[in-house]
Amino acid sequence: MYYVAHRLFAAHDRALAARLAQRVADKIGPENVFLPFCDTNEEDLVAEVKGRRLFELDRERLGNLTGMIAILHGPSLDDGVCMEMGYAYALGVPVIVVTTDFQTYSMAAAGPRLEFPDPIVQAAATHVVRVARLADEQSAGAAKTRFEAFADRNASQLDWALEAAVEELLGLPARRPATASPCAGAEKVAFVEQSPYLAWQGALTAFAPAAGYVLRTPGRFTAPDPVLAAHQDLTDALAADVLIADVSGPETPPGAALLIGAASACGTRIAAYQPRLTFTHAHGREPNWRNLMIQYASSTHLSDPATLDEWLRS
């Protein structure tokens, strides 16, 4: 089964994902492709707790994958897609990321260029297909206006990116050995992923040692080689007994989302820390305090230091 991971919340995102899914289906058959929202019948699904049911349906597919293509654009990466990438990565499933974002990123003006704002996304990807420039003007054909010509150049850019991503995915070995397994050692290890949006949340790191855990924290944001350090962060997080992820921000930060997915695939205890709740609402679905893939993958939601300390000691 091949999984197309994409942002769900706008028609143009869903349409792009459907185009990509159709390209994969044309090569291997539609029965071998899973497209969220479409194949979970999200628009019309009726369930007692609809968000949880959608999570369960997606997780069933995530646990039995041959490969994944993830669509990611812009500096604010979709947290549901990042969660799904982390889940696939932990299980050894190859992940191709496709983007037509013309920007790249760095931790410093002269630092190494990164494909995404958080280097852990690049580290978890098997391959990144980036098409950063419009197709040439000849691809516009006989368009009547400059706007039609511009639209055609963007459409050609998308077509090339989708085809390249499909070819890359289908040319990869089906599955590698899982990256890591939960820690079986004598030490209790806690990995704390802090929100890059809230520097003061550094206080979260004090609670794990006080509760008897060996503390591990990310090194990728200050390392000379951020991608190499991100691989180590993944290794440390996957070997931890608990993951404490601050999910504060406009949406769950991409690193926290990816690590929650990876930890969920390994059966690790996960605390999603978010002091200030905001809710999303969708037709027939319960209010969700984060993307439903984050909300239901997490073992618990914590909103203050006292509850975090209590959870760690339980």
Rank of each mutant, 00 (worst) to 15 (best):
Arg61Thr: 01
Arg61Cys: 02
Arg61Phe: 02
Arg61Gln: 00
Leu62Lys: 00
Leu62Phe: 00
Leu62Thr: 00
Gly63Pro: 01
Asn64Ser: 15
Asn64Asp: 13
Asn64Glu: 11
Thr66Asn: 14
Gly67Ser: 02
Gly67Met: 03
Met68Gln: 13
Met68Ser: 01
Met68Lys: 03
Met68Cys: 04
Ala70Tyr: 03
Ala70Met: 04
Ala70Gly: 02
Ala70Val: 01
Ile71Gly: 00
Leu72Pro: 11
Ser76Met: 12
Leu77Trp: 01
Asp78Gly: 00
Asp78Cys: 02
Asp78Trp: 03
Asp78His: 01
Cys82Asp: 08
Cys82Gly: 08
Cys82Thr: 12
Met83Asp: 07
Met83Glu: 13
Tyr87Gln: 02
Ala88Cys: 04
Ala88Glu: 00
Ala90Ser: 13
Ala90Glu: 01
Ala90Lys: 00
Leu91Met: 14
Leu91Lys: 08
Leu91Trp: 03
Leu91Cys: 07
Pro94Thr: 02
Pro94Arg: 02
Val95Met: 08
Val95Ile: 15
Ile96His: 08
Ile96Trp: 06
Val98Met: 15
Thr100Trp: 04
Thr100Ala: 02
Thr100Met: 06
Phe102Tyr: 11
Phe102Arg: 10
Gln103Glu: 13
Thr104Val: 09
Thr104Phe: 02
Thr104Ile: 04
Thr104Gln: 05
Tyr105Asn: 02
Ser106Lys: 09
Ser106Val: 05
Ser106Leu: 06
Ala109Met: 10
Ala109Phe: 12
Ala110Asn: 14
Ala110Val: 07
Gly111Thr: 12
Gly111Cys: 11
Pro112Arg: 09
Glu115Phe: 13
Phe116Glu: 06
Phe116Val: 06
Phe116Gly: 07
Phe116His: 06
Pro117Val: 10
Pro117Ile: 05
Asp118His: 10
Asp118Thr: 05
Asp118Arg: 04
Pro119Ile: 04
Val121Ser: 01
Gln122Val: 05
Gln122Asp: 07
Ala123Phe: 08
Ala124Phe: 10
Ala124Ser: 14
Ala125Lys: 03
Ala125Gln: 06
Thr126Gly: 01
His127Gly: 04
Val128Cys: 12
Val128Thr: 15
Val129Ser: 11
Val129Gln: 05
Val129Thr: 06
Arg130Tyr: 10
Val131Gly: 04
Val131Trp: 06
Ala132Glu: 14
Arg133Phe: 12
Leu134Phe: 15
Ala135Leu: 08
Glu137Lys: 12
Ser139Met: 06
Ser139Leu: 03
Ser139Ile: 01
Ala140Met: 11
Ala142His: 14
Ala143Lys: 08
Ala143Ser: 15
Lys144Met: 14
Thr145Lys: 09
Thr145Ile: 08
Arg146Gly: 13
Arg146Gln: 13
Phe147Met: 12
Phe147Gln: 14
Phe147Trp: 14
Phe147Asn: 14
Glu148Asp: 15
Glu148Val: 05
Glu148Trp: 08
Glu148Phe: 10
